[in-house]
């Protein structure tokens, strides 16, 4: 399934592999631990190391699970922009509107939050440089000293974030923004054949794995 997704998408295998790279230690460790610490029929015994049949199977399961989990999230973030992601989420959860849950507002908040992450990172860098130029020291000292050293960074960061939020609110209001009621969209999401196919395949996969849950090799 995951292989199929990758083949269909335009994301190259190389980017995904490079995404897996930082997690290699975790993957290898999980594999090894599962291999050595599962009891069962012994295949190879050497000094204190025992490799069992069940261990190998377990390890393979765990490793493929982790890899699958990561590729699935990768596929999502690489193929779908945060904007269409929140749009989709809004559509999916729109049934909650009947229960007076402000879905539009929530998804708007989410897209604004996502939009401002890079801005905040940039801002942090700038302030850090400015305080470094005044002799701030962010890296040395104990925990308390380090926490204290963060004050000159956090205070300006919060102030500018609040200011930005204020400005954004004014800008939105001056363009007559007033929530979701009767609002049309610039991008309209429509279900296409491909979407139905993916959904059908996913459901099939779920059902299949549920039916196979008891089967072991």
């Amino acid at each position: 399934m995951a292989v199929l997704f990758i083949a269909v998408s335009t994301v190259s295998v190389k980017t995904i592999l490079s995404g897996l790279k930082p997690l290699i230690i975790i993957i290898v460790l999980t594999g090894l631990l599962n291999m050595f610490y599962t009891s069962g029929t012994v295949l190879v015994e050497f000094w204190i190391i025992k490799i069992t049949r069940e261990g190998i199977i377990n390890a393979a399961y765990m490793v493929s699970r982790i890899i699958m989990l990561i590729t699935a999230t990768f596929m999502l973030t690489y193929t779908t922009s945060p904007l269409s992601l929140t749009d989709g989420l809004e559509r999916l959860l729109s049934f909650l509107k009947r229960f007076k849950v402000p879905i539009h507002e929530l998804s708007m908040m989410m897209s604004i939050a996502l939009r401002f992450i890079p801005t905040l990172i940039e801002e942090t860098g700038k302030i850090m440089n400015a305080q470094n130029a005044r002799g701030a020291d962010f890296d040395t000292g104990g925990l308390v000293k380090k926490a204290k050293a963060m004050i000159p960074l956090l205070v300006p960061l919060f102030i500018s974030a609040f200011k930005r939020a204020d400005e954004l609110a004014v800008a939105m209001e001056s363009r007559c923004y007033h929530g979701g009621e009767g609002r049309t969209r610039m991008r309209v999401l429509r279900m296409r054949a491909a979407d139905w196919v993916v959904i059908a395949l996913s459901i099939m996969l779920c059902v299949a794995s549920w039916l196979l849950r008891g089967v072991t090799l």
């Binding site: 700038k126 302030i127 400015a130 130029a133 002799g135 004050i151 300006p156 102030i159």
Partner: peptide, 16 residues
Amino acid sequence: RFKVGMVFQYPEYQLF
């Protein structure tokens, strides 16, 4: 850094 003082653009954002 103490001998070469640097005032960044819009330095008022560094006040805390």
